[in-house]
């Protein structure tokens, strides 16, 4: 190992595994890409193999799958109504991807896909792209009424519409930054405290005794990070549902 083992940033480094160069662009298969493929593969395999038995009385794995299904379905129905249920595969895929990617990040030596802004921003752009695309497809130009709140006097309407448009455009930013910042900050904190244990232990007996404190902190933070991993996947999915509601019912 040539790098400092307690460097908290090293875990986010992108390495090329299979270098691919097409024209001027770098299409290399990186460790990030590898873990995205693994995330999709594990999520798909888990959902497929647990529901293969189709037991009337579900096995443990099957009830996990059924619970996550019903959880997402209720979330979508609450936010976007029955008309929004056609987006269920989309929301469920996003929820499972983010959840599995976040939980993958908790495994030591694994790469956290969602700790890179470009990945979460791509997900958020996908969500907003679907909202805008479906809104125009379903309601035509009348969908733009989503930017015109009802009951606003005419003379401040241009200002309010401008504010609403900026507010709408800020959604993918806040959606992606929130997920990215939570994962990045959590993993850095975890690594910093774990690094204290290593560097303090090198100082002799007193250091080893003293390193119990950061060790306890690391254990507590690990539990917290599992919570954050699940919570952020949930928040991402809930906000996706709420934005889809604007595409399905533009008049509020």
């Amino acid at each position: 190992m040539e790098h400092d083992p307690t460097d908290p940033i090293h875990q986010f480094q992108i390495n090329r595994i299979v270098p691919i160069q097409i024209g001027d662009w770098d299409f290399s298969f990186t460790n990030s890409a590898l873990f995205m493929v693994l995330t999709v593969a594990v999520a798909t395999a888990f959902l497929y193999y647990t529901t293969r038995g189709r037991g009337l009385v579900p096995s443990r794995g099957q009830s996990i799958t059924e619970l996550s299904y019903e959880f997402t379905a209720n979330m979508l129905r609450d936010a976007a109504g029955t008309a929004g249920m056609k987006f269920f595969p989309f929301v469920f895929s996003i929820f499972m991807f983010v959840l599995v990617a976040n939980l993958f990040g908790m495994v030591p030596y694994f790469f956290t896909v969602t700790s890179h802004l470009i990945v979460t921003f791509a997900l958020a752009l996908l969500v907003i792209g679907v909202v805008v695309g479906y809104g125009f497809y379903k309601h035509g130009l009348k969908w733009l009424m989503v930017f015109v709140p009802s009951g606003v006097p005419g003379y401040i309407l241009p200002l309010v519409v401008a504010i609403e448009i900026v507010s709408f455009l800020s959604r993918p930013v806040s959606l992606s930054v929130r997920l990215f910042a939570n994962m990045l900050a959590g993993h850095i904190t975890l690594k910093v405290f774990a690094g204290f244990v290593v560097s303090m232990s090198a100082l002799g007996t007193l250091g080893v005794i003293g390193s119990i404190l950061p060790l306890l902190m690391t254990i507590a933070l690990t539990a917290l990070e599992f919570l954050v991993a699940a919570l952020q996947a949930y928040v991402f999915a809930v906000l996706t549902c709420m934005y889809l509601n604007d595409a399905v019912h533009p008049h509020h």
């Binding site: 976007a80 109504g81 029955t82 929004g84 504010i163 800020s170 806040s174 509601n245 019912h249 008049h251």
Partner: peptide, 21 residues
């Protein structure tokens, strides 16, 4: 700035029921 305030107000205000149900 106004849009940011709007975002915050929207996320803390209680949500109306979806119009379909």
């Amino acid at each position: 700035f106004a849009a940011g305030v709007r975002n915050v107000l929207r996320s803390v205000s209680p949500k109306p029921a979806p119009s379909a149900n």
